[in-house]
Amino acid sequence: MTDFLNYLILGLTRGSMYALIALGYTLVYGVLQLINFAHSEVFMSGAFGSYIIIHAVVGDGKSLPWFGVPLVFILGLGSGALTGAVIAWSLERVAYRPLRRRGAPKLAFLISAIGMSFFLSQLAGKLFNRFTNNQFPTYFQQNRRVLSIAGADVSVIQLTLIVTAVLMMLFLDRLVSGTKLGRSIRGVAEDAPTAALMGINIDKTISRTFIIGGALGGAAGFLFGTAFTFSNIMGFLPGVKAFAAAVLGGIGNIRGAMIGGLLLGVVENLVPTAPWNGHAWIGIGWTDVVAFVVLVLVLVVRPSGILGERLGRAA
């Protein structure tokens, strides 16, 4: 039971990261019917952007007074989100808008996205370094226990990750369902030409959608980097998993992306470690396989994902 809870917490931590990134895929898919494969690099850039700021503030790591820790953390989150938003916005300007203007086929967008993904990843490698285990400076005791549920410990960093991610998701949910901007995003997603006739500026809306998705992805990059490590190739695996999570929940569906992300994180931690005769049944070496087998099984039963497609209707 304790083990189960331990893995569940690990799964929720990882799942909340997937969910944050998945939102970026789903939002863009909603308005453009395009998988923005460069989104994993938006995530990566968020980690590097926030590292520069955090490093400037705390140097190589030191103990901060109690009120300093949340301040630095929020600063990191903000700078990560800002970097992500700027990169995503530029991506749309450079890689997608020119294609959209010329009415290019969807495949051209995909190639463009993959090209930008390589470009950004290699650029970060060139600008910073190509080590795979860069770490943020430590400015708080990440592994201190904050609470214990039935013998399973939850550490500061796990709780922070989950709470921050959930707060950001709630914020996004409100933003999309309750504000004018959200209404225009939903409008464009449902029927872009009609939305344009109703006076919605499509270009602006798409741009803002990229900014929102990028900010979430960049913030996720900061959280991921703080909890684990960051590198110029960090985006690939979480990016693919988050894309899978978005498809799992129903691509284009915001709540679907959240549920899909959390579910994928939990499943890929619980299933391979499920005990059988006193040891792990499948083994942690199969984590990624399990994640994609689950994706395939869900899509066989529900081809449009758990909550179904289309941003406009379900959100």
Binding site: L10, I233, H279, A280
Partner: peptide
């Protein structure tokens, strides 16, 4: 008990937990 963890992994949480468990 033998296990493999791909060298591209960044999150060793589950691996560490299974060692402990």
């Amino acid at each position: 008990t033998r296990s493999s963890v791909d060298a591209k992994t960044t999150d060793y949480g589950a691996a560490a937990q299974s060692v402990k468990s």
